[in-house]
Write a protein that binds this DNA or RNA. Structure first.
Length: 867
DNA sequence: GAGTTTGAAACT
DNA sequence: CAGTTTCAAACTC
């Protein structure tokens, strides 16, 4: 759809077909009278407002996605010239909308009634509702249409809300007008600060919205179908062309103009996105241009705002994904600015249909500044409080799964965006995606230079890029691909398809691989900690609080390297070999095969059920082998009474897999949570490193950032999760300051939240992490103390039944020996177990690819099965 | 930098 | 599941 000018897009009701109905006072009245809307779960509301009800979880990912898309959309006004419509103004308005959407969604989430959604969305589907908004944004670059849509949203709301919204709308209009005026005066922020965007804006392109439109159509809206189709066609043409050996440079020629525009749009889209999200600020900081968009009546400001203030480095949250492929960037923001940080994840949780997710298509220059990530899920919107005092700015972070709030320490670092983190699973190998400083010089690196840089990265800070030649970076051979990230500038790969512009293909390939091996993209190194049980238990289990207990999930098969070289993945990950390894002549210095079995008795292959709970154990999952990111389940012996930990019994199927928290290997659901954690904890995910961080920076890739999640040793008396810094002797270090980025429960769903009566444990320097799922699970557990599911002993059969919506296996933990840990723990564990079994399967897809309906169906089936 | 070695990934 | 091939990183010179 072409949008020559805002004027060309007259306000219509195309995207708001049901508007007339909802516009009717009767409808609004009825909506307001909806008794369901007021229905709340008191316990949840009181104790865990952030936990709230499942709807929050249900909506969160998509909401965020949509919101993210909204933000992205802002940057996608290809037809909007600076002279006609200020992107700023529109963006501003979008921010308002998105913000209000958030509010709206929260309200929706507050209600356990699906009817509310009906009220909110003309189609009864929240996604649809949001999609509509998106369509409006994408298809109608007209203020009026947006306003109209905005008003549409308000139809079912209270008069106060409507009134407030109207005010905001008016403000938005005023803002736009103002910005327009400013723009006419040559103050266009985008143009001034983001040359790429400027270019993008100059491109007359009608299908720029393809990606988003895809997602839109995915949820049933056909408004953007045309664009999506066009884009897809263009994309395929492009891809085919490239696949046939044509380089990008030669692509333009053979393609029709429209396709070329698409192609260009693909690039610019990403460029603009990035500019909006990261690059924008970066450009500004780099360019030192300080154009400020006046925000008359709002606290919200555009990300492009340049407020003379101390830059704040905000770690980007890790992406969300079972495979832990996430990227964390530190973004420098300023008070009063709103930073939309996106992280990505893909694969395990979401592959199908994720193409719709806008992707930060890396601009060549962007690659050096931040790592592209694969289709993503997590979006972080950080709002720096203008009024923040001291050294901390309150940053609200929202991700697909959470909206944590954490504090950020302003930094004077000149680095705008640093690296991201790849939470890949191979230690050094697939660990850090990229730690690149915003160096423009880097952008100019030539191929050899790239190669060099790649090597340097891999050698220097643990981050590396691939050098694939034949795999097109679409196989696990490719470290980037395996890590769930797009190849970037530092890569020296040839014929690479692991780029945002080939998102569809990437996803498709990834899906294919996952179909073969669901854990293909899962962390490969799992850490396990065997903790000394409490004295009360009377067990004298040798404390095995050692990170060395980490093991490669699959084990190696080395024959000649004796596991003493990096050929060995175990060795490379700095973990010892386990019985699961099939290596020959193992001499792994981190632990030889056969030597490792700190809890062998616990995970007795022959008696897995009995052994599982023999000792207080915790499982750690090393997201990235070299300490890039660790998600660990651990026991906080210092904080709470020992609690039975999860059992990672595999029922004796595979010793090597027994301790692996993966759903595939474990009968415990935690694995799933564990996998999820990285995504959930994105905001906190440490990681980030840039050249300035070096090794001194606790967050650098060289330093392990252990995010500790004690899902097992939840303090059930205080309803507080046990957290403890994992004393990794090899990476022992206090929780880095940046760890404070983890939500402290200030409304952030990422933060662990204890019961209303119990504050979240505040460990010095320790941030509590919680993922929404867990929140919900806990919520469920707290609400229902009699989990029937517990009555079902953990049996393989049960385990099989239980699976996450994303098809990840979620297995119930064994509770056979819970009694050994005391009734209190037992209760808690049961609760936890219950919630796991009950809630996890019920979870809506954490990814946009899974239709909530299917989940509902699955729930239904699960229920029927239980019966 | 080129060539070799190695073992994971992919394929059959 | 095992054997073979492909692949890219690790390694050596």
């Amino acid at each position: 759809m072409k949008m020559d000018s805002p004027e060309s897009s007259k306000p219509t009701t195309t995207n708001c077909e049901t508007a007339p109905v909802q516009d009717s006072p009767v409808f609004s009245f009825i909506s307001n009278l909806s008794p369901i809307q007021s229905v709340r779960a008191p316990p949840v509301t009181q104790g865990f407002p952030e936990l709230n009800s499942p709807p929050l979880v249900f909506t969160s990912p998509r909401l965020n996605r949509q919101r993210q898309s909204t933000f992205l959309k802002r940057a996608q006004f290809p037809r909007v010239s600076a002279a006609n419509l200020s992107a700023q103004g529109y963006e501003k308005l979008n921010i308002q909308l998105s913000t209000r959407l958030d509010v709206c969604n929260e309200k929706c989430s507050d209600s356990n009634s699906p009817e509310v959604d009906l009220n909110e969305s003309p189609t009864g589907c929240p996604e649809q509702f949001l999609t509509d908004i998106m369509n409006v944004n994408s298809n109608k670059f007209s203020n009026n249409s947006t306003l109209e849509k905005h008003e549409c949203q308000n139809n079912s709301r209270t008069s106060e809300q409507i009134e407030a919204d109207e005010i905001h709308v008016l403000e938005g209009v005023a803002l736009i007008e103002q910005v327009e005026n400013e723009t006419k005066q040559g103050n266009g922020v985008f143009v001034d600060h983001c040359p790429d965007i400027e270019r993008g804006l100059s491109v007359v392109h009608g299908s720029t919205n393809c990606a988003e439109e895809d997602s839109v159509t995915e949820v049933g809206d056909s408004v953007g179908a045309e664009q999506a189709d066009l884009s897809d066609q263009s994309y395929h043409l492009l891809f085919e062309s490239i696949e046939t050996g044509k380089e990008n440079e030669t692509l333009t020629e053979p393609f029709p103009k429209e396709v070329q525009n698409d192609r260009e749009a693909f690039q610019h889209r990403g460029v603009r996105r990035r500019c909006l999200q990261f690059g924008d600020a970066q450009h500004k900081i780099v360019s030192n241009q300080s154009t400020q968009i006046t925000s008359d009546n709002e606290g919200l400001r555009l990300s492009s705002l340049e407020t003379p203030s101390i830059p704040i480095k905000i770690p980007k949250p890790a992406g969300i994904g079972l495979h832990l492929n996430s990227i964390v960037n530190a973004v420098q923001v300023r008070p009063g600015s709103k930073v939309n940080v996106r992280s990505s994840r893909w694969g395990n949780l979401c592959i199908v249909g994720n193409k719709s997710m806008p992707v930060n298509e890396p601009h060549p220059s962007d690659y050096s500044n931040s790592t592209s990530i694969l289709p993503l899920e997590a979006s972080v919107s950080a709002i720096i409080d203008d009024n923040m005092h001291g050294d901390h700015a309150s940053v609200g972070v929202t991700s697909a799964m959470s909206m944590p709030t954490y504090s950020v320490k302003p930094s004077n670092d000149s680095i705008v965006y640093n690296s991201l983190e790849d939470q890949s699973t191979l230690g050094n190998k697939r660990k850090c995606i990229e730690n690149v400083v915003a160096s423009e010089e880097f952008n100019k690196s030539s191929a050899p230079k790239k190669r060099m840089k790649s090597l340097e990265l891999s050698d220097g800070d643990g981050c590396k890029r691939c050098n694939c030649r034949k795999s097109k970076c679409l196989k696990l051979y490719c470290d980037c691909f395996a890590a769930g990230i797009y190849c970037a500038d530092p890569c020296a790969c040839q014929g690479c398809f692991n780029k945002p512009k080939y998102e569809d293909m990437v996803l498709e390939t990834r899906q294919k691989i996952e179909s073969r091996d669901p854990l293909a993209f899962a962390p490969r190194v799992v850490k396990r900690v065997t903790e000394k049980p409490s004295s009360s238990l009377g067990e004298d289990v040798t404390t095995n609080y050692t990170p060395s207990s980490a093991r490669h999930k699959r084990g190696c098969k080395c024959k000649k390297s004796m596991c003493l070289k990096k050929y060995c993945e175990c060795y490379q990950s700095n973990v010892g070999c386990s019985d699961g390894c099939r290596c020959e002549g193992c001499q792994n210095v981190f632990g030889r095969k056969g030597d490792f079995c700190p809890t062998k008795d616990v995970f007795n292959e022959e008696h897995p059920n009995e052994a599982a709970n023999t000792t207080l154990e915790t499982c750690e999952m090393t997201v990235s082998g070299n300490g890039i990111n660790h998600i660990e389940l651990f026991d906080a012996h210092n904080l709470t009474p020992p609690t039975p930990a999860f059992q990672f019994s595999n029922h004796g199927k595979d010793a090597s897999k027994a301790w692996f928290p993966s759903g595939e290997y474990s009968q415990s659901p935690e694995p799933d949570l564990t996998y999820m954690a990285p995504h959930m904890i994105s905001p906190g995910s440490p990681i980030n490193s840039d050249n300035n961080n070096n090794n001194d920076d606790p967050l650098s890739s060289e330093n392990t950032q252990d995010i500790l999640l004690d899902l097992t040793s939840f303090d059930h008396e205080s309803h507080t999760p046990n957290l403890q810094k994992w004393a990794d002797n090899s990476k022992s270090q206090p929780f880095p300051e940046k760890r404070q980025l983890y939500p402290q429960g200030g409304g952030g769903s990422l933060g662990w939240r204890g019961s209303p009566n119990t504050p979240v444990p505040q460990l010095s320097g320790t941030k509590l992490i919680r993922d929404v799922e867990f929140d919900v699970l806990l919520s469920n557990s707290f609400q229902d103390e009699t989990p029937e599911i517990l009555k079902d002993e953990s049996t393989p059969a049960n385990a099989v039944k239980v699976c996450s919506p994303n098809k990840k296996r979620v297995s119930p933990p064994h509770v056979s020996r819970q009694h050994e840990f005391g009734s209190g723990s037992l209760t808690g564990l049961r609760t936890g177990r219950k919630f796991i079994l009950k809630a996890v399967p019920s979870f809506p897809p954490l990814t946009p690819c899974i239709d909530s309906r299917s989940v509902a169906v699955q729930q239904k089936n699960d229920r029927s099965v239980k019966k």
